[in-house]
């Protein structure tokens, strides 16, 4: 149980970092501007629109980026600086180090996420005077899961990387994979299998493959939650899919509008939570396995 000592110590160190608070501060300002600016432009704004702004700015940029920034040095940093030897000298083993670091960094991200969510709730109250409690709770839970998933990815990468540069490369690479590469890759797969680009009505496997991306899982779940289309950071639909002109603007690209008949279970809200949970377990398991076997000098 010595990982608890590591987690507590590490948490203290990370929350003292000015960079973490700086990123949170910048995000909150950004979030305020987006909310105020956008809500004055859309007709008949509702409280849940604030959540959809958050999903856009917070869910796809802030939460993953801060989680990657906070997590990528967790183990690679100790390894490169030699303080890992001190931890080992203090009776900790590799599992303790990994668990302790994962717990502490996840805690930091959970705190940052809660601050951001609280700010969102305040905005909703201030602008609309009401708070759809159930929706907000589901939103907070999914956002916490998203943060935990990206922390797990970062710590997993950190456990695998021998140097700071490689850990950073892995963290940046994972974000690029999810935002820039995933959708074109799935579209490419469809092209190979079917001979054309996917249309507005998409096969279940296609949407499922997209949803295996944690960012996409979060975005789609939030779309369902607020009952409206939340656009992705990059509008790949208009680039690598054969959707009608204007579909993007009309918001007709929500998952529920793209499948024929009932929504299969693997495209439901709760399944997005399962996807996010898998993204917590798998990177940590891989990182743990590699870390256990590595020569750590």
């Amino acid at each position: 149980m010595t990982w608890v000592a590591i987690a507590r110590k590490d948490f203290e160190d990370v929350v003292r970092s000015r960079m973490v608070w700086g990123i949170i501060g910048v995000f909150l300002v950004l979030m305020g501007i987006v909310t105020l600016g956008a809500s004055s432009q859309i007709e008949d704004p509702a409280a849940t629109d604030v959540i959809s702004f958050f999903t856009n700015v917070g869910g796809q940029l802030f939460v993953p980026i801060i989680a990657l920034v906070v997590g990528y040095m967790a183990i690679a940093g100790e390894r490169q600086s030699g303080s890992l030897r001190i931890l080992f000298g203090l009776s900790h083993n590799r599992r303790d180090v990994l668990l302790g670091k994962l717990a502490s960094r996840t805690g930091v991200i959970a705190a940052a996420t809660l601050v951001a969510c609280a700010f969102t709730a305040v905005l909703m109250l201030a602008l609309f005077g009401s708070l759809p409690v159930g929706t907000v709770l589901a939103f907070v839970a999914l956002t916490l899961l998203l943060g935990a998933a990206f922390t797990a990815i970062a710590v997993g990468v950190s456990a695998t990387a021998a140097t700071r540069a490689r850990a950073m490369g892995g963290a940046i690479g994972s974000y690029i994979l999810f935002t820039l590469l995933w959708h074109p890759l799935v579209a490419g797969l469809h092209y190979l299998l079917e001979g054309d680009l996917v249309g507005l009505e998409a096969p279940g496997w296609y949407l499922f493959a997209l949803r295996l991306n944690p960012l996409e899982a979060y975005r789609q779940a939030m779309s369902l939650l607020v009952d409206g289309y939340v656009p992705a950071l990059v509008g790949w639909e208009t680039i690598v899919e054969d959707v009608p002109q204007g579909a993007f603007q009309q918001g007709a690209l929500a998952v529920s509008d793209r499948v024929a008949g009932d929504l299969p279970f693997y495209l439901s809200e709760w399944f997005a939570a399962v996807v996010l949970a898998v993204w917590i377990v798998v990177p940590v398991a891989i990182g743990y396995r590699r870390f256990q076997r590595a020569d750590l000098n």
């Binding site: 160190d13 600086s81 000298g89 009776s91």
Partner: peptide
């Protein structure tokens, strides 16, 4: 059962020296 003073290490810059020792003692 071993105490180690490694060569070339960084400590945790934002913690006090006393906190380092508390951590070391707690760990063991």
């Amino acid at each position: 059962r071993v105490g180690v003073l490694p060569e070339g290490f960084d400590l945790w810059n934002r913690s006090s020296g006393r906190r380092h020792l508390e951590f070391a003692i707690e760990s063991q």
